[in-house]
Nucleic acid binder design. Structure first.
Length: 350
DNA sequence: AAACAAGACAACCGCCCATGA
DNA sequence: TTCATGGGCGGTTGTCTTGTT
């Protein structure tokens, strides 16, 4: 069955010939594409408009970058995928010169398999139930954590189109309330309150994201965390191997987000000029000090309660929600970003 | 050298959404 | 408000290339 635009036409399918490419390029560069459904006829092609559009966008555009993905690109894909899921078009926007199709193919043919080989669920980036990499087991050799090795307190879902558009609304994160506990005395102190937003490497529609280890020396301070009475963790004796240990460069996601009964909603508030925007956890007692700055963000938790799950509002231009913060929280075993490089750690060999 | 398998990549399919009549 | 249409997107399939036996 053809598309609306070409169902009445007899169109050619399959691979494009160099001659067809030439016709399309010549037409688009001369006239622009305008209405894609009209392009085939005007360009003298026996193709459907959608096919022309796809060919142009994915292969003929002059600004496309061809060739293998770099390690940096791979890392970006992994990082952004962890946040957005299979939203290839959104992911591709973080990779100049790459298309959603290219990213998708690269993911399916390479990255996905390697994540699986690492025992990570390519959908959630969590450890799969049957996988227990040593790095994670090491963190569980003590009884300070009740988290099962296969689970993190929350995961990023791949919401349907109906309820999620990162450019318009908030990505939803599925939180497993049962796993969200907050240690009462975990220090989270961000040392870097004013990183210029232009330093953030991934930017789109005013949403600035940083996955880089911008400040590897940063620590965190949950000074008010003691208010979380339902925490079941023993925080008074955290061994150096614990995820809570700050010196090993890994902070457990439960610490990062700290929500005893389900930190329900997080949202970024629009900053006033010269004031850092804030990250709120709606549905949670205030747990962090206003100076809990992370890469230009204040982690701010307020009192409201709801059951919606966490939201990160990406609407506001200039928002610089810190995804380093998030990535630290999301990594199941701390093996990737605590102080290292995900690519190095996973030893991609594509 | 041939056959087969696996991987990589290009293209299509079908759905959804936005827009305009 | 409804419907038709075009554009965009993610999932899937088909085809070509490369490696292995």
């Amino acid at each position: 069955m053809g598309h609306h635009c070409c169902s009445k036409q007899k169109v050619k399918r399959g691979l494009w010939s160099p001659e067809e490419d030439e016709k399309l390029v010549k037409y688009i560069t001369t006239h622009g594409h305008g209405c894609w459904s009209a392009v085939p006829k005007l360009a003298g092609l026996q193709r459907c408009g959608k096919s022309c559009r796809l060919r142009w966008i994915n292969y003929l555009r002059p600004d496309l970058k061809r060739g293998s993905f770099t390690e940096e690109e791979e890392r970006i894909i992994i990082d952004v995928h962890r946040i957005l899921g299979n939203r290839w078009a959104q992911i591709a926007k973080h990779l100049p010169g790459r298309t959603d199709n290219e990213v998708k193919n690269f993911w399916n043919s390479c990255i996905k398999k390697k994540l699986v080989a690492q025992g990570l669920d390519p959908k959630t980036h969590n450890l799969m139930p049957t996988s227990k990499p040593n790095c994670y087991n090491n963190n569980l050799t003590n009884n300070t954590s009740q988290f099962p090795s296969s689970t993190t307190p929350f995961t990023i879902s791949s919401p349907s189109k109906n309820n999620f558009d990162p450019t318009k609304s908030s990505p939803l994160l599925d939180i497993n309330p049962a796993l969200l506990t907050l240690p009462p005395q975990i220090n989270i102190v961000a040392n870097e309150p004013n990183i210029p937003i232009e330093n953030y490497p991934y930017q789109e529609n005013g949403v600035l994201m940083s996955f880089k280890d911008q400040n590897p020396n940063s620590t965190f301070d949950f000074t008010n965390a003691a208010s979380c009475s339902s925490s079941s963790l023993d925080h008074t004796n955290i061994p150096s191997s614990s995820p809570f240990n700050q010196t090993n460069g890994f902070i457990d996601e439960s610490v990062m987000w700290g929500a005893p009964n389900g930190m329900d909603t997080m949202e970024l508030s629009q900053p006033s000029e010269g004031v850092a925007p804030t990250l709120h956890a709606v549905g949670q007692e205030q747990q962090t000090h206003p100076q809990n700055y992370v890469n230009g963000r204040v982690a701010d938790f307020n009192d409201a309660t709801n059951e919606k799950g966490m939201e990160i509002d990406g609407n506001c231009a200039g928002n610089a929600f810190d995804f380093e913060y998030m990535e630290s929280a999301l990594m199941p075993c701390g093996m990737l970003y605590g102080g290292g490089n995900s690519i190095e750690q996973l030893q991609w060999d594509c």
